[in-house]
Simulated scan of single mutants.
Amino acid sequence: MDAFIGAYLGVLTLPNVSDLDGELLIHVGVGRTVGIWRARHPGDARALFLFRSELGYHHHGVPRQKELLRGAFAGMHAHAHRWVYELDRTPAFYFDSITQLRMDRTSLG
């Protein structure tokens, strides 16, 4: 059995314009967190978006997913605004609800 816990996760690839190397730049707000770190590929970074919402929305339609991220992070730090701006140019994007899995047991043995 699984249970939606009221949160969403988004990850996108963007240029490493902050010149990060071995560090994570993160901003935390009420019900939302955004961060960026350098990816393994030179010149690339990954932005992580976490936010809470009772939308009950599940991962259908990339345009709607990007719209949800834009709304959730509107008015946050200028860094977050720049990272959200990359949603229309990113070569890689992931979005999903965060779900807790509940099991009676983990093995038959």
Score class of each variant (00 low, 15 high):
F4L: 08
I5V: 15
G6Q: 02
G6C: 03
G6A: 04
Y8H: 12
Y8I: 07
Y8G: 04
G10E: 03
G10L: 02
V11G: 01
L12P: 01
L12D: 01
L12V: 07
L12H: 01
T13V: 12
T13Q: 10
T13L: 06
P15Y: 10
P15M: 08
N16Y: 08
N16A: 08
N16D: 10
V17F: 15
V17R: 12
V17I: 09
D19V: 11
D19G: 04
L20K: 06
L20M: 11
D21A: 15
G22D: 06
G22P: 09
G22S: 09
E23Q: 14
E23N: 09
E23I: 12
L24D: 02
L24S: 04
L24A: 05
L25W: 10
H27F: 09
H27W: 14
G29F: 03
T33C: 15
G35N: 04
G35V: 08
I36T: 03
I36V: 13
I36G: 00
W37D: 09
R38P: 02
A39Y: 00
R40A: 15
R40G: 15
R40P: 05
H41I: 15
H41C: 12
P42A: 08
P42S: 03
P42I: 08
P42M: 08
P42H: 02
P42K: 05
P42W: 01
P42T: 06
G43T: 07
G43S: 08
D44W: 06
A45H: 00
A45G: 03
A45K: 00
A47H: 00
A47P: 01
A47C: 11
F49D: 00
F49S: 01
F51Y: 14
R52N: 12
R52E: 11
S53M: 06
E54C: 09
E54V: 09
E54L: 11
L55P: 00
L55H: 06
L55T: 12
L55M: 12
G56T: 05
Y57V: 09
Y57D: 04
H58Q: 13
H58W: 07
H58D: 15
H59Y: 11
H59V: 14
H59S: 14
H60G: 06
H60P: 01
G61D: 07
V62D: 04
V62Y: 04
P63K: 02
P63L: 07
R64M: 12
R64S: 12
Q65T: 06
K66R: 12
E67Q: 10
E67N: 06
L68S: 01
L68K: 01
L69F: 02
R70F: 04
R70L: 10
R70C: 10
G71M: 07
G71Q: 07
G71R: 07
A72T: 01
A72R: 00
